[in-house]
Amino acid sequence: MSITIKNELAQFLIRLADSEIILGQRLAEMCSKGPFLEEDIALSNLALDLFGRGEELLKIIADLEDNAYTPDDYTFRRNEREYFSYKIVEQPNNDFAWVIARQYFHDVYVREIFRQLLNHSDQQIAGLSEKVLKEIDYSYLHARDWMVRLGIGTEESNSRLQKAVDSLWKYSEELFAFDQIDTNVLDDSDQIKTVWDNEIDQVFSEANLEKPEEFKRHILDFRQGFHSEYLGMILADMQYLPRAYPDAQW
């Protein structure tokens, strides 16, 4: 099955939807692996929010695409090159510092996007954004608190967090390479980069972190369906049952 998205607004939203679902999948991996039980609950809360958000976005997308496909079709039957998730959310749970850094970067960026979607003319999108912002505020606070806790806590936690930040940093670049599909929907994409820069500077200073060097890289853009090698494995797990039993209803 080859599933393509034709509507331009849907093409914008699918990037968000895919990223939320893939990030949800990464957080779901942490089930029973957290540093203590309370954090297991916190992370699965975040995962639930992400899957819920992804599903709501997919419903809107399905609508825009005249219901040619269902949210489950989009999730379980698109292949690697038909996914439009950010590479940063595909990165693995190497340790808890990676989980936190990835979450923090994601939350700062996606929160800004939803803030701008709050004013969208489509009532469904505006309504969803209002609900999502409450969730993301909570996720952002949790991630930010942990950035500072790990940054200040011990030498080891600082060093692990710095390593995670250093490795993930290159994947932040493509987030701001907005194209016309983005700018047709977002009021002010420059604003997103400004907020990001301020946030990062503040948190890094509080958490005793060094900001990695910025330089232009050529990384094949997620907007063209280019991914890290991790996505294939993530989809292989996630899509296994519907692909193994294509005639079954689940």
Binding site: Q25, A28, E29, C31, L37, E38, D40, I41, S44, N45, A47, L48, F51, G52, G54, E55, L58, P71, D72, T75, F76, D237, M238, Y240, L241, P242, A248, W250
Partner: peptide, 26 residues
């Protein structure tokens, strides 16, 4: 089986259940 749940609903329901279990443990 959480990562391989065969639908979005099944995945969310299973995750909520597991989360409840962590809560019960607490």
């Amino acid at each position: 089986w959480l990562l391989r749940a065969p639908s979005l609903r099944a995945k969310q329901v299973l995750l909520a259940k597991i989360q409840d279990e962590a809560g019960h443990g607490l």
